[in-house]
Amino acid sequence: MKIAVLLSAGRHPVSGRPAPVPVELQAIRLAVEIGRQFGGDVTGLHAGPELGPLTDALGHGLARLVHLHNEGESDPAPSLAAALAEGAYDLILAGRAGQGGEDSGLLPYTLARTLGLPIIADAAALALGEAPGTLGVEQALARGARRRLLVRLPALVTVHPAAPAPLPFAFAAARRGSSEARPGRHAPAPSPTVEERPYRPRPKLIAKAAAGSTALERLRAATEAASGGGRLLVDPAPEEAAREILAHLRALGLVTAR
């Protein structure tokens, strides 16, 4: 079994210095542990101008690190897609979002579409499937809920911060490990004018309970922030759904009203 872990050029949320992304280090741990059961090997892949402190991933249990070298601002997706297709990996793991870059979390979806692979988001744990060639994924849902899914490999899985903590760093392993540089594919960066700044957690949108509601309702409104503010549509027509989403985004001020 061949496993790839995608590593992005992260930044420390406070110091702003280049740093590995914790959730990707957690992905390495899941990969290493599942690889040990399946007898697989794990490769880290990074596309970008330089590795920087990503070589530290070698100290967190990663055995091999491949650097797809791109000059400057370049879209990493084509390089990664090509390397992943060429490597014929059974399992591709990525963090649910990077940290300090665009951190949109869209790259795994782009890759899954390019490679024609199923994608499962937010794995907190991985296990062997009973049937050969399948993988059990424990998906982390909101408020601590979990869902078990079974997926036929190959597949792309993103990892959730609820996964086990990264393997502790071993300096000597990082020093001994080596990385292999390969030329990446140059592709213009999709949006060359992103502003880079240190990560900060976003404020939660707290829904307000109607005046005069019970204490329980107010508590629920304050704690169930993420679910607040929308309408629940069951099985709507696509046009109606799109309208509804746009209206919601407009209400949040994320789309300018036209």
Binding site: R17, A165, F169
Partner: peptide, 28 residues
């Protein structure tokens, strides 16, 4: 620590913060 990375569970985080933020609590 250096060869095995076998530090006690709760010691891994401050060491990681020291590596990338020069401060064991990850504070600015």
């Amino acid at each position: 620590t250096l060869e095995l990375g076998a530090v006690p569970a709760r010691a891994a985080a401050p060491l990681m913060e020291l590596r990338y933020a020069d401060e064991p609590g990850g504070r600015a």
